[in-house]
Write a protein that binds this DNA or RNA. Sequence first.
DNA 1: TAAATAAAATTAACACTGTTAACTTAATAA
DNA 2: TTATTAAGTTAACAGTGTTAATTTTATTTA
Lengths: 202, 202
Amino acid sequence: MSISERKTREKQEMKALILNAAKDMFIQEGFEKTSLRKIADKIEYSPTTIYLYYKDKTEIFHELMEIGFSILLNRFSEDMKIVNPIDRLYALGETYITFALENSEYYDLMFITKNAMDKVHTADDWCSGKKTFMCLQNTVEDCIAQNQLKSKDPNTATLAFWAQVHGVVSLYIRDRMKMFPKESIKDIIYASTSSIFEMIKK
Amino acid sequence: MSISERKTREKQEMKALILNAAKDMFIQEGFEKTSLRKIADKIEYSPTTIYLYYKDKTEIFHELMEIGFSILLNRFSEDMKIVNPIDRLYALGETYITFALENSEYYDLMFITKNAMDKVHTADDWCSGKKTFMCLQNTVEDCIAQNQLKSKDPNTATLAFWAQVHGVVSLYIRDRMKMFPKESIKDIIYASTSSIFEMIKK
DNA sequence: TAAATAAAATTAACACTGTTAACTTAATAA
DNA sequence: TTATTAAGTTAACAGTGTTAATTTTATTTA
């Protein structure tokens, strides 16, 4: 039985090899500019070999997306230990922004890239994606339950907070902040979010 | 001198013909999936003819972006007549969201699409883009001057407000709101923004 | 160990893409 | 009417994702 074990292990290693090469190129060049032939070149295999391990290009993409979400979920898990809901909410926001600025290409394909959600249907896909969202939603609900937020409706409050942090980092990542002083952009990003935070809490 | 006049007019008409065909396809299919050959097919010209009127594919794209900004600027101009700064600010936010929901492909290429800003350098490009931003910035400054906002810093306040509306519509446009009840998404979008608005004003 | 089978990887090919160069057709000027 | 300029087309290049057929390699069976 050890031969089939090795086989599955080798299959896993090959998938990892492809994924790793793809990751580097996605991060540097983006999804569209990264071709399967370039990935194949990098790992010194023929382009079609990739199809023996991944159904198509988007499947590689989705696996990277899952990795991104598991990284973010990991960082969120630390914040979830904070007992006071409003402090927890603030920590989640800061973690979110820091993750986006440090892993902008991951963030890009998780929250911005077009058509990434096309084939996300089953509950199994998008799993850690939903979990990260639940961290935020539960925290907002806790805040409301403990009367720490001005808003009473969990849905609108969750979206408002998420939209705030997503808005600011996605404008930055997609290069729409040219009208702000370049040297202090990151400061402004954090400052604008924490100023909003001060206003939404009681 | 009337022949050269006609020539320049015909050139303009041809550009408009291409742009119009491209617009429809961009709006329905997006930038990447719209090929020059398909555009050429639609207007019944050969693909290379397009190059006699536009430098490359991105130049068509940028002209569409300019059109989008001029539409938005037009709607903003109406709001700018409102004398009370805080009312004006609220109107701008609502106009922004409505524009984004009604013209999502325009919005997409104006504020989300990757690399769209690559060749935007000169002050002449991006002109109405900057003007729309100035509407928001000036209004925020007016609000602060009249002590109608809790925030004192124009930069962070402007970004915070913009990020709020951009965040919410871009999550919607790029299909990241599957966890919200589908039938009431648009309501939640407007509700979350106006709830934030109530909190940032004095 | 040698032949048969299964798995892994490759080459060739298809139908696309944006873009350039060379050629043909139509319109203007001499 | 001929020479010149402009407009439009065809052919071609280098690239893309993907499929089918083929070869190479590894494993199993006789």
